[in-house]
Amino acid sequence: MSKYGTLYIEGNSFFHRLAPSIKFIIFILWSITVFMSLDLRLSLALLAIGIIFLFFAEIPFRIIKNLFAVVIIFNIINAVFILLISPEFGAELTGQKTRLCSVLGFPVLMETLFYVITISLKYLSLLPMALILIFSTHPTRFASSLNKIGIPYKIAYTFNIIFRYIPEIQNEFKIISQAQAARGLSYGKDEKSLIKRMKNIFSITIPLLNTSLERIDKITNAMELREFGKYKKRSWYNESKISRKDLLVLIAAMFLFTAAVYHRLTLDSWFWYPFK
């Protein structure tokens, strides 16, 4: 974690320079495109584009590798669950049944297998743009960009406070857990009993809660002294102006999005299955 307490990595890549609000809109369009269909071709294309984007965003490979590993493990567990709980789902989607083999008495359908691969890639194809948004957006710019895309500033400002207080809360958590550790309470692996571990973790949480409740008063007073919320609008210290380049990127993204919507409308089913 960086000094901001988040995953932001400093850099000067194309995505770092892009206005955060534009990045946000692209992320939303990207998600809608993924949600629209269950299409292996689309997922593969988006994944390929996303990986190229990640390369351009200059995010260290070792970090991406770990995060992709987490999501791939999640996908494998998810796929096993799908195969166990609803092994006939592929047949329901396509209307045909092709038995491949049977594992321990469970029949494995080719359609379900294809469906599992499709949905795993669908989950993966959502990842790159989210990573770019997370890794290349400075946390304090996050709030102003949310305000820019139409969210009221009082709600957007919460993100400013959140990011500012992450390091303090982490610090406090460390102090409290060390104080409890001195009393012999541990929430780590060295405590064998699961129930005790749970109790210990709660005994760290409650002091943390109490101090946070006290903190609210202090921050509120400080902000009210500075007349927070008096006017309908506010300006931001970290405001990023939308340049002509940003607008071009936005127009390109919009164009690609409309192309994806058009492509989706020409298909009659949202699940793409080539072996008919």
């Binding site: 009082k154 709600i155 400002y157 919460t158 993100f159 400013n160 406070i161 959140i162 207080y165 992450i166 809360i169 943390l208 809660l209 946070s212 903190r215 609210i216 921050i219 509120t220 902000m223 009210e224 927070f228 919320g229």
Partner: peptide, 15 residues
Amino acid sequence: FSTRTVVTISIGAAL
């Protein structure tokens, strides 16, 4: 949506 609400939401969300 007073200042206190904004602060409460933020601290709660951060925790």
